[in-house]
Design a protein around this nucleic acid. Structure first.
Length: 594
RNA sequence: GGGUCCAUAGCUCAGCUGGAUAGAGCAACAGCCUUCUAAGCUGUAGGUCGCAGGUUCGAAUCCUGCUGGACUCGCCA
């Protein structure tokens, strides 16, 4: 019975596997099933792992507690990685050799060349992650924050797992809204303002357009402005000079503003093909659908019926002959399949568009395109204010940049206060750099701490609360551990764990801490398979909480025993590695001090 | 009306392939800085897991119904 403990990723997995094999030898169950049954008891006094025997009761025709009792006896003598096997009620509880576990786990974290949890699970597979996709000419507000932050985190997670990840930004640079902007700009546009504050100016005329559109109505009750806007968009799609020129200016000035945000977050897209890019590929899509006899005319529009999928029809061409977002998205899937030959193509787009994506994928499926099955919509909730959703039209928005600025400002104040108290004279540059990372981290974490399908109700006092389950807490924990490592002498801080008796640090807290770190790789994989970064957030939050407990209970530097001192420092180093990796997977940077 | 999803502590959320006393954080209250960063730690209080049935040895978790809410249902994206 040998445990392979040299590879970091698998220690717990291997342990569970060994235990499962052992149990399966004593029962009729396969190793896999046993592995599935194994769980962690609610109280540490009960054991480190447990096998509920209720399910075995039927087939073995015996009471669960008897089964557990017999198994406990049959497993004697125990392998060296177990210290005790005990029956409690209908459970068979296992106590593992904690000393050995701590020794091997910490050693492997510190010895590994790779970051914790790195794997080659996705080796050779290409995954496209479409996210952010802001609309040109509109402010980059906190609503875009969700897709941007979630998407980047997912991309990092897939990178970590060895996928060939492509970040795609499907810019909203086309559509009737540009007809509106062109009409609005021709009427009320201000050249100087467009140069000075491009998005603000475009937003101003966009809001004005909607105000005015409600006023000017013809005898049939149709808005005159809306009609003009549709016509302007038709001219744009036909390539008219004036319209195209305005459109491309709008796009240009908008990108400058978006890039500020992306640079700040360290996001680099592999591709920024917006909707406009796919516009001229739509005729081929229409032709293909026509050839396969999927296209039908309905109320003047060209649609694909999707009754067999239990979905409403998908409109491909509007009754005026212009394209619609669905047709562009279909063209995009086909283009991406040709260009990247993707294994997976995921869309980090809000939940309200769920039906839209179901329709797109269904049309592709109906058209016999195999790539349809490799597409997936990763939806998320809505960002709203306590009194309702945000709205570009009414101008009720908070720009993501402004939100960052507030968080950074508050962070800077806290750092300055603390620095004074601690007598630490940090330079203004240092403070700025830390404030930036911590302030941004606080905001990013808000979007990543819970299940993505939850709505986020935006409240300033909560957003700027840096206590508890927040990124600053995690960053603070990291900085604390780093601070200790800086204070330790060179020899202590770099001791080779394999030469130490790490078991000296063992107690309930340190064992739980080490186990939480051992579970980290699995948390990453779970996060990937559910597309839920919060699973990583929770795991590192658990690690941080346990570390802080350890920090409060046990002295690290001020102890005589060299082995104990160096061993505890090894634990600090391991925690730092895991925390930093976890934060990075969320798109958050760790700071050395704060 | 059809569809999708949601309802767990005062608030924000985990837990949901059924399993031991339902867990965190915030807020509240009580403690801990002459020792490694108090953005921290410890403790107390707080829950008929929306309601009603059902399946099961066992249900927050699965099924049905109901109530309340969100989103969506053809020419916006």
């Amino acid at each position: 019975m040998q445990l392979n403990l040299r590879e970091y990723e698998g220690i717990t997995m291997d342990f569970v596997a060994e235990l499962s094999t052992l149990i399966s030898q004593e029962t009729d169950l396969s190793t896999d099933i046993v592995k599935d049954f194994l769980e962690v008891p609610p109280q540490p006094e009960l054991g480190d792992y447990a096998l509920p025997c209720f399910k075995l009761a039927k087939t073995m025709r015996k009471a669960p507690n008897l089964i557990a009792e017999e198994l406990a006896e049959k497993m004697q003598p125990l392998p060296d990685y177990l210290t005790e096997v005990r029956q409690t009620g209908g459970y068979l509880n296992f106590f593992i050799n904690r000393s050995r576990f701590i020794q091997d786990e910490i050693t492997s974290i510190l010895h590994s060349e790779q970051e914790p949890g790195v794997s080659d699970l996705g080796k050779g597979q290409t995954i496209l992650v479409e996210f952010s996709s802001p609309n040109i000419a509109k402010p980059f507000h906190i609503g875009h924050g969700f897709t941007t932050i979630l998407g980047e985190s997912l991309a990092r997670i897939y990178d970590h797992l060895g996928y060939d990840t492509k970040r795609l930004n499907h810019l909203g640079d086309y559509g009737t809204q540009f007809g509106k902007l062109i009409v609005a700009y021709d009427r009320w546009g201000n050249e100087e303002e467009l140069l000075r504050e491009p998005i603000d100016e475009l937003l101003r005329i966009y809001v004005k357009f909607h105000d005015e559109a409600e006023q000017e109505i013809d005898e049939k009750g149709v808005s005159i402005l809306e009609k003009e806007a549709r016509e302007a968009f038709q001219r744009l799609e036909a390539g008219a000079e004036h319209e195209t020129q305005l459109w491309s200016r709008f796009r240009e000035v908008s990108l400058i503003e978006f890039n500020r945000v992306y640079d700040r977050l360290g996001i680099k897209f592999d591709n920024l093909n917006g909707e406009s890019f796919y516009s001229d590929q739509i005729p081929a899509v229409v032709e293909m659908l026509k050839e396969k006899n999927l296209l039908e005319e309905s109320e003047g529009a060209q649609v694909v019926r999707l009754d067999e999928f239990n979905l409403p029809p998908c409109i491909i061409l509007k009754s005026d002959g212009t394209t619609i977002y669905a047709s562009r998205d279909i063209a995009a899937v086909l283009y991406r399949d040709k260009t990247w030959n993707f294994n997976r193509n995921i869309y980090v787009v809000g939940l309200p568009q769920q039906l839209h994506f179901k329709q797109i994928f269904a049309v592709l499926k109906k058209a016999g395109e195999p790539c349809a099955d490799r597409c997936e919509h990763v939806g998320f909730g809505t960002v709203k204010f306590p009194d309702g959703a945000l709205s570009t039209r009414s101008g009720k928005v908070i720009k993501l940049d402004d939100l960052f600025a507030e968080a950074v400002k508050k962070t800077r104040q806290i750092i300055e206060t603390n620095a004074t108290e601690r007598g630490d004279d940090m330079s203004a540059e240092t403070i700025d750099a830390i404030a930036e990372k911590v302030g941004l981290g606080a905001i990013l974490y808000i979007f990543l701490k819970n299940g993505r399908e939850r709505d986020i109700v935006f409240k300033w006092e909560e957003v700027l609360d840096f206590d508890g389950d927040t990124a600053p807490y995690l960053q603070y924990t990291y900085a604390r551990a780093k601070s200790i490592l800086r204070r330790a002498n060179e020899v202590d801080a770099t001791a080779d764990p394999s030469t130490l008796e790490l078991a000296a640090i063992e107690n309930d807290t340190t064992f739980q801490l080490v186990r939480a770190m051992a579970d980290f790789p699995e948390a990453i994989q779970n996060a990937a398979s559910a597309n839920e970064p919060f699973m990583i957030a929770r795991q590192i939050n658990l690690i941080a909480r346990l570390f802080n407990k350890f920090y409060n209970n046990d002295s690290i530097l001020n102890i005589e025993d060299t082995n104990l001192r160096q061993s505890r420092l090894c634990l600090c180093r391991a925690v730092c590695r895991v925390l930093k990796t976890g934060l990075n997977l969320l798109g958050i940077e760790a700071v050395e001090k704060m």
